[in-house]
Design a protein around this nucleic acid. Structure first.
Lengths: 144, 144
DNA sequence: ATGAGTGCAAATAGTTTGCAAGCTG
DNA sequence: CAGCTTGCAAACTATTTGCACTCAT
């Protein structure tokens, strides 16, 4: 149980104040995200929400919408693919990700300030940064 | 001219001492990388090396081989795709990348030590990390 | 001459898009 | 009942793979 009790409430608030409709699919996807309580792939999310295979499209569109209102953060994997994480507004952070089983741990260390400063010095605007740490978690070391 | 004079020599040394053959294609790709002197996509590299479209496969295989001996570093883009950069051995660093024109600037700031320490504390091994900063460079701000 | 490297074609993974039909506010 | 959302099919991008052929060592 990583999330504080009220996360669902706060997320629902964000959704309510955003110009979007709460449909059954979105409810199920949101519920699945809360239940999973960790970053997952689009396909894993669809499975957890018990949607048919063809609904992967809807999953992607929903994730995109949710990312737009700031409640989903995308975590790129080392090679290809992404994980998606339910995030409280203004809770920027990074991750340790197992490249085998995709288990993730929160990483509370961020150079955002410094990076942004340097970027502006170089003339860059609309700066965003990405930082992820990949490795093999204990379980996956044993397995291999 | 970002590279010190001797980079080609040092890179050639690495190649010589590695178990691989120096073919005409590889020579051209290497020359193109040196001439470009900045991270590029596989397609851009093929074009610079003046290889036919169908040779993208060879470009990817060569980049993979070169990455294996440590003279190529892969830089993931924000959404999809990668840039490939000729790198001297043991010259780990990160980048500022323009999300529009893919211009890149070197970023000499790295949390490798700290990240590795925290990762090990969490039980992760074979740790690698990724950090890139994306933004709009001056030219691309004007353009848009 | 032997096995690394290449060319061609085709497959793959993950994600996106177009358009008609359905449902929410 | 307007238009956001979905379903289905198909496209797409970046990259990888299989296999026969070629060339560097």
């Amino acid at each position: 149980m990583k999330h504080a009790k009220g996360i669902l409430q706060r997320i629902l608030q964000v959704i309510e104040s955003a110009p979007l409709r709460m449909t059954r699919k979105r409810e199920r996807l949101l519920a699945a995200l809360v239940a999973l309580d960790r970053p997952v792939s689009a396909a894993a999310l669809r499975d957890k929400a018990d949607l048919p295979a063809s609904d992967l499209v809807t999953v992607y569109r929903t994730l995109e919408t949710f990312e737009g209102i700031g409640i989903i953060q995308r975590i790129p994997l080392e090679d290809s693919g992404s994980l998606y994480e339910l995030t409280e507004p203004n809770d920027h952070h990074h991750h340790f990700v197992c490249r085998e089983c995709h288990r993730t741990e929160r990483l509370d260390l961020c150079l955002g300030q410094e990076l942004e400063k340097q970027a502006h010095t170089l003339g860059f605007t609309q700066v965003a940064h990405l930082m992820e740490v990949y490795g093999l978690c204990e379980d996956c070391q044993v397995a291999s």
